[in-house]
Structures are given as structure tokens and as C-alpha cells.
């Protein structure tokens, strides 16, 4: 564990708490993409189910449990509790375009060996899917052209999480000679997808202005 990864994990955890807070206090999931949240449940279940047969540390297991349960809870909030506030007509990104390529890539590029085939394929699938899981949310943002400030804080914390993993990988390369090309390439792509959002967040939201996309 190093400081970058720890801060990244905290940022990830914070983003989820912000989202739950936003939905519960406004009693609405307005501006939130159900499809992105569904993808995160798929990502976390396919990656973290290994907590059943792999023990790394108490921290690791508790975080995995948190991510699986909180993302499922968010799905419940959106799809059942506050379902009337959901507007499917603006959440139109097609999920097969993301899930199918991630599945194909995971069958081709993975770290599977004789001992661990399924778990390694599932792991790489979850990494590929996570790298693009934010697209339905960004697409929704693009369509509405604006966002509540709390939603932008959620997105910033979520983007900061993968951005912080980049110095973590550099640090691990320097100190342990450890390189994980699948995680690194996917992580770089995932972070790059936030570039536009980060730009508007830093130039507008941080200065107290409303998040609005240029017309």
C-alpha cells in the first residue's frame, strides 16, 4: 500500500457516499445514469467476488464488501425507491456496445493460467468494463448540458480515484519493479475519459459557478 493508492481508494469510497447522500437528500436520482450504476455493480461483482476465496487483508476484504453492497444499494435506490424520478429517455447509451467488447477483450488479453482461468478472465473483464463504465453518465451529462453541483463532486471524486492510481503504478514500478499492463492501459484510458469533465470542473465548479457545457 502506498499513499497514492490509499488516497485513490478513499476518493472512490467518498464518491459513492456523495452519490448516496445526493439521492437520499434530494429524494431523486435526477441527473444520474442508471446504466452507469448498473455497470459498476457488474464491475464490482465480477472483480470482488474473489473475496470469497482470496484473502489479502482486512482492509481489502472490507473495501470489496463495501463496493459490492453500496453499488447494489444505489441500484436499489434508483430502480425501486426513487424509480418515479428516473428519466430513461435521456439515459440512452447502449450497454451491449460496452459489455460485449469488454467480454471479448477479456478472453484475448488476460493473465489466465492453468490454475486460474475464470477468475483471471473475470478480473480483466471487470477492468475493461470499468474503464468505460462512466460513458453512459457522461453521455447523459452531454445531453442535459448541465449538472447539479453535488453530481459534479461525485464525478470528480470518481475520476480522481483512477487518476490517483497512476502515480501508484509509477511508484510500484520504481519500488517493486511491478508492472500490470492491463490495469495501467485501462486506467489511463479511464482517466482520459474524464479530461473534458475535469477541465470544466476546475474552471467553473471550483470557482462557485454552475456546471454547464458550452452550447
Amino acid at each position: 500500500m502506498n499513499i497514492f493508492r490509499f488516497l485513490g481508494d478513499l476518493s472512490h469510497l467518498t464518491s459513492i457516499l456523495i452519490l448516496i447522500h445526493k439521492i437520499q437528500t434530494s429524494r431523486s436520482c435526477r441527473g444520474i445514469s442508471y446504466k452507469t450504476q448498473l455497470l459498476y455493480v457488474i464491475v464490482f461483482v465480477s472483480r470482488y467476488l474473489d473475496l470469497v476465496w482470496t484473502y489479502v487483508s482486512l482492509y481489502n476484504s472490507l473495501m470489496k464488501l463495501f463496493f459490492i453492497s453500496s453499488s447494489s444499494y444505489i441500484l436499489y435506490l434508483i430502480k425501486i425507491r426513487f424509480r418515479p424520478t428516473l428519466d430513461p429517455s435521456i439515459d440512452t447509451f447502449s450497454l451491449p456496445y460496452l459489455i460485449i467488447p469488454a467480454a471479448i477483450l477479456s478472453l484475448i488479453f488476460n493473465y489466465a493460467d492453468e490454475k486460474a482461468w475464470l477468475s483471471e478472465v473475470l478480473w480483466s473483464f471487470s477492468i475493461y468494463l470499468e474503464s468505460v463504465a462512466i460513458l453512459p453518465q457522461l453521455f447523459l451529462l452531454q445531453r442535459t448540458g448541465e449538472a447539479e453541483t453535488i453530481t459534479t463532486h461525485y464525478l470528480f471524486a470518481l475520476g480522481a480515484y483512477r487518476a490517483l492510481y497512476i502515480p501508484n503504478w509509477i511508484y510500484r514500478y520504481a519500488t517493486e519493479s511491478f508492472v500490470d499492463p492491463i490495469a495501467i492501459i485501462s486506467g489511463l484510458i479511464q482517466t482520459a475519459l474524464y479530461a473534458d469533465f475535469f477541465y470544466i470542473y476546475f474552471t467553473k465548479v471550483i470557482r462557485g459557478q454552475k456546471f454547464e457545457l458550452p452550447a
Binding site: 500500500m1 481508494d9 463496493f67 493473465y111 519493479s177 511491478f178 508492472v179 500490470d180
Partner: peptide, 10 residues
């Protein structure tokens, strides 16, 4: 240590 995923990363 190269070419395996980091099991300690989330």
C-alpha cells in the same frame, strides 16, 4: 512479478 494482476489493488 511481471504479467500478473495485483491482488492487493482494488
Amino acid at each position: 512479478h511481471v504479467h500478473t494482476h495485483a491482488h492487493d489493488e482494488l
